[in-house]
Design a protein around this nucleic acid. Sequence first.
DNA 1: TGTCAATGTTGACAGTGACTAGATCTTCTA
DNA 2: TAGAAGATCTAGTCACTGTCAACATTGACA
Lengths: 211, 211
Amino acid sequence: MPSPNLPLKGEEPRQKHMPKKASYHHGNLRAALLAAALDILETEGLHALTLRKVAAKARVSHAAPAHHFPNLKALQTALAVIAFERFSESMAAARERAKKDPATQVRAASDGYLSFARANPALFRLMFQENQLDWSDPSLKQAGEASFRHLVEITAPLADQLGLKTQQERQELERLVWSSAHGFAHLHTDGKMETASPPDLARFLLPRKTK
Amino acid sequence: MPSPNLPLKGEEPRQKHMPKKASYHHGNLRAALLAAALDILETEGLHALTLRKVAAKARVSHAAPAHHFPNLKALQTALAVIAFERFSESMAAARERAKKDPATQVRAASDGYLSFARANPALFRLMFQENQLDWSDPSLKQAGEASFRHLVEITAPLADQLGLKTQQERQELERLVWSSAHGFAHLHTDGKMETASPPDLARFLLPRKTK
DNA sequence: TGTCAATGTTGACAGTGACTAGATCTTCTA
DNA sequence: TAGAAGATCTAGTCACTGTCAACATTGACA
């Protein structure tokens, strides 16, 4: 009969300002689980994210998360929603700070893309982890689409400036902008190109006069 | 006392032309384990790759792989070496088939990059799985560097054609070529851009006359 | 022939996701 | 306001995982 007051492995020190939880029910376990999971991702990485560790960090039993996330995939999906929202914010903030001409906006969005990946490598991995997310979840789908709308938005003026007329050409440019931003961010977080600065696609595409 | 002849779960039917293995020792277990692992990756995906399943497929006990691969990371590292070799072959074959002008060579290498990822999605994921490979392994390091030498090689003539003089500019173009090829392949295997064709970076970079 | 290293097996352990049954709390209604 | 119903949590269990230790078998070599 183990005492419930014995400190469990990996348990966090009790925080005073947490929602009072001397009671049987937690109060806001779903949010606490997500916070615990984000903390684990940040400090230990994606491979260390387990339901039981998350439960322990939130000071509940190992089966408690099941009432909020039926399985690990559901938890990861909820985390990915948060991640895509932050991802969008990162790109929006970078665009906001930058000048509004097409090339600078493309640069800014790419920088936002990269700085999110740099600041949240585990979350970035999670977002693009094959088969580990439930893309039929509407909130995930929406958050994901919102993120990539940034890339569509910044590409259109550049396509104009490059004189691209057909839908096909313009979509190809979108894929190129997205691919190069994503590729660099992914390779960068994988340890390749660690010291290098991101390639400036817009400068290569535009006539030399631009800088 | 379980009979060793009872068919185990996930076991393969006995192949006649396999190295005879009525004996205690397998003969070439290391190769058999790698073959079993590649088969699992192809049929079930990266998440299904476990040491015990690999051992069962090779018809040995669950602990036998430890004598050839001290841990899962070592097995995955050995698989990544094979993967990078095939990856190089894919790019080399595509370059061989293509015309030798700079733009076409860049296109060809990118196509080789992509067709490898398309044909071996699980292996492609494995190669760029953070923290799951032992990059201090010399054979992995060598295989990886050989792969990316292709990208350096194809970029140089394009850099000449674009009139890039400084080392800095030329390396930036390398990063751009690599990033866009990698980004598209990664997004593609992740289910994004599923139907789309890869963006043709070289065509965007060169003056319009080229096609 | 005897020894020993390489290579296999068996058994065990802690950690994992998932499931079930039951305890406890909250909320809603009669 | 009582009590029923549902939501939320705990405890226990299962199959599966990677890893380790102890032991069996084989073959090569002194």
